[in-house]
Amino acid sequence: MSSHPALRVLLLPVLAALLHAQPQSLARPGVTFQIFQFPADQIPRVDGNTDDWSMVPESYMIGTDQLMDTVHGRGTNIDRKDLDVRVKVGWVKGINRLYFLYEAYDNYWDFSRNDLHNDIFEVVVDGDLSGGPLIAQMHPNKDIPRWDAHFSMHGVHAQNYHIFTPAEGKDWALAWGCQPWIKELPYMNAAYKYNFKPGEAGRLTLEFWITPFDYASCDGPDRSVESKLWENKIIGLSWSILDYDDVNAKTHTGFWNLSHKQTMYGNASDLVAFRLMPLEPNLRKKLEAQWSFVVADMDRRLIAFTDRTVGQVTSWKWDFGDGTESTEQHPIHAYEKAGQYVVTLYVEGPAGKSRRAKVWDVTVK
């Protein structure tokens, strides 16, 4: 058994610092909202019902009090008899999706027209904190033709969704950019629940998920790269509510903005920090053995194993499947012969014992 503890000692603090670093270029410095982690066996159904979200603590709720009107000069003075909203955001470890629950009361729901004149929940996401302009109108090269800018960068590194609330007789959203395919399955899903007509007051529930992209190609999904989501990662995210109160009005009467910067709709540097949270303590198993591995050097059949056990561990035992063992937490092992191996991690802690075997995942030549 071979190991390189010095390398791990050098790298782990660097990785930890990167994971927990606070972004400096986003709007609202010092503010980091939280994204709730759903257990893998309790992924919310997209059906417009809120039952699946009952496990999400109210501390994750982002309400009207966090919004600012950045167009009409009303600041944070929102009349909740006119508009009141509640938003919760979730994720599931291992799936590159962001789940949203949007609950809103409006004294006048405007959605009878076929164009952009519609009450809108506008969501902008930057999954890798790349920052910078994301719409053609803000392209830094002012000499580039408008449509060349559109088809080269609009929505590519960060995405803007104009979500119609509600949508009747048209798509649920405008994916503002050159890649309308991101607003369709298998990259999103959405469901509404409401019982009002255009011009009436009432409450709306919107449940949906989207897939953020580090690179959303104008040519389609085959050349695109999804944003990878992991615990404690910080992403850029914000939203605004475009509130119309007159079907004949030329523009909205409210632009209520979480970022507090008007340009959040087109510049990813003006979004807000959101952290992908670990499971809440009451949803975690007390002890569950988990592990992963990478091939460090196939020529030497060198495999690096990483303990990812959930819960407090006092002892580890690795069975590498070739007759050798290790009691290190993160061993590196060299296999003498090519083959397919059953590797098992046994752990013990205050909560008891647990094991995790993987059959033939570890294969060397």
Rank of each mutant, 00 (worst) to 15 (best):
I234M: 07
S240N: 14
C218Y: 06
G202S: 08
H260Q: 15
E226D: 00
L206A: 09
A249K: 07
K228F: 01
N257L: 00
L258V: 15
C218L: 02
Y244T: 03
E226G: 00
C218F: 08
N248Y: 14
W256M: 01
L204E: 12
K261S: 09
D246C: 04
S227W: 05
I241M: 14
N232V: 02
L204A: 09
G202N: 11
N232K: 01
D219C: 13
S227P: 06
Q262F: 09
D222M: 07
A216M: 08
A201V: 08
I210C: 05
F208S: 10
L204T: 06
E226M: 04
V247E: 15
P212Q: 07
F208N: 05
R223S: 14
L237S: 06
R223Q: 13
H260P: 01
M264E: 02
I235V: 11
N257A: 06
V225E: 11
D246M: 09
Q262A: 11
E207L: 10
A249M: 02
W209E: 07
P212I: 08
F208V: 04
S238A: 15
T263Q: 13
W239P: 02
N248V: 07
N232P: 02
K233D: 07
I241N: 03
D222P: 02
T205W: 06
T253L: 04
P221D: 03
G220C: 09
H260M: 11
G236Q: 06
D219N: 15
K250A: 10
K250G: 14
H252G: 02
E231P: 08
L242I: 13
W209S: 01
A201L: 11
K228E: 04
K233H: 01
A201Y: 13
N232S: 08
I235N: 10
Y244Q: 10
I210Y: 05
T263N: 13
H252K: 05
W230G: 12
Y244G: 07
S238P: 07
F255Y: 13
L258P: 10
A249R: 12
N232H: 10
I210A: 11
G254P: 06
W230F: 15
W230H: 10
K228N: 00
S240V: 12
W256N: 00
I234W: 00
G202C: 13
V225G: 00
H252Q: 02
T211K: 01
F208P: 06
D219S: 15
L204H: 12
V247K: 15
N257V: 03
A249Q: 14
A201H: 10
M264L: 00
K233I: 03
N248M: 12
D214H: 03
S240D: 11
N248T: 14
V225L: 02
S227T: 09
F255T: 07
Y244W: 15
L206M: 14
N257I: 05
L229A: 00
G254I: 12
K250F: 09
A249L: 08
L237I: 11
N257C: 04
G220R: 08
G202V: 11
L258T: 12
S259V: 00
C218A: 11
W256S: 01
F213E: 06
W256H: 08
G236I: 10
T251W: 04
D243V: 04
D246V: 01
S259K: 01
K228T: 09
W230D: 12
M264A: 00
L258Y: 13
E226N: 01
L204S: 01
D219F: 15
R203Y: 14
N248C: 09
H252P: 01
